[in-house]
């Protein structure tokens, strides 16, 4: 029974919003009735207007996220596996990390211009930190005994990397990559708003400027949905890749 409480509460909220709007208690130009948002969503999808922004945002976010992961893991391995990297490079990364990533968007705009390359570059800069720092830590905290196993078996460096270093850092890398994909979506929306060359961010911006509020809320809903779906997909990937892990102690 308890599990239905939550859904009932959501339904009640939607019904309440519907009622408030129908009675004209709230200005519908700012807060449209849920059915209007739903209608905008359905018609946008049916007429095809929404597919292009969805595809663009998804493409931006995935391109940026994948590049961020590649860059983060390679750089993270170099920094995490070597004393040189930990001493000389890691402090600079620590300094740059708390920099609000959105601040890089105007720079991208100025240096690269209003185009997809700028959007992806901004996403990479914003999304690289979690996966980078996670892989620095992952590679730095390998079990020392396994390094000895690798020595006694006389593994070649390449084989040791594939058989021992990467799998050992993988749990942290994946945890970082999951945070990164959420940031990639955020940065995609920010960069799209600024670039106004398409994508859901651009859609939101245009809908807001022309007071098409149902479209605006439909866009917000889609961005949320994209976040939920990518998170679920990565949860699956994580469960598959880390199937060797004993189930975490629950308490």
């Amino acid at each position: 029974m308890r599990r239905w409480y939550g859904l009932m509460f959501i339904a009640a909220l939607v019904a309440l919003a519907e009622l408030v709007c129908a009675r004209g208690l709230i200005w519908s130009a700012i807060f449209p009735a849920p059915h209007a948002t739903l209608a905008a969503l359905v018609s946008g999808l049916a007429a095809g207007d929404l597919w292009a922004p969805i595809a663009a945002t998804l493409a931006h976010m995935l391109a940026g996220w994948i590049s961020a992961c590649a860059l983060g893991v390679v750089l993270g391995a170099l920094v995490g596996m070597t004393a040189f990297g930990r001493d000389y490079i890691a402090p600079t990364l620590e300094f740059l990390r708390p920099l609000p990533a959105a601040a890089i968007a105007p720079i991208g705009l100025l240096l690269i211009g209003r185009n997809d390359a700028m959007i992806v570059a901004v996403i990479v800069f914003g999304a690289v930190w979690p996966v980078l720092l996670a892989s620095v830590h992952g590679f730095a905290s390998i079990e020392p005994r396994l390094k000895e196993v690798s020595r006694t078996l006389q593994l070649t460096p390449v084989r040791a990397l594939w058989a021992i270093w990467i799998p050992s850092a993988l749990p942290e890398i994946i945890a970082g990559a999951r945070i990164s994909i959420a940031l990639a979506l955020i940065m995609a929306v920010v960069a799209e708003i600024l670039a106004s060359t398409g994508g859901l961010g651009d859609w939101l911006n245009l809908a807001e400027r022309s007071y098409r509020t149902p479209e605006l809320y439909a866009g917000v809903l889609l961005v949320g949905l994209l976040g939920v779906l990518t998170n679920l997909a990565l949860e699956r990937v994580e469960a598959y890749l880390l199937r060797w892990k004993p189930p975490a102690a629950t308490f």
Binding site: Y5, M8, F9, G201, A207, E208, Y211, G219, V220
Partner: peptide, 26 residues
């Protein structure tokens, strides 16, 4: 927890930036 949990979970999944245009309007 069981009443508001799912609703919060749902709202949490919306990136705040996507709400900036909404907030701007309001």
């Amino acid at each position: 927890r069981s009443i508001v949990g799912p609703a919060l979970e749902l709202m949490r999944s919306v990136p705040p930036v996507a709400l900036i245009p909404v907030a701007l309007l309001a």
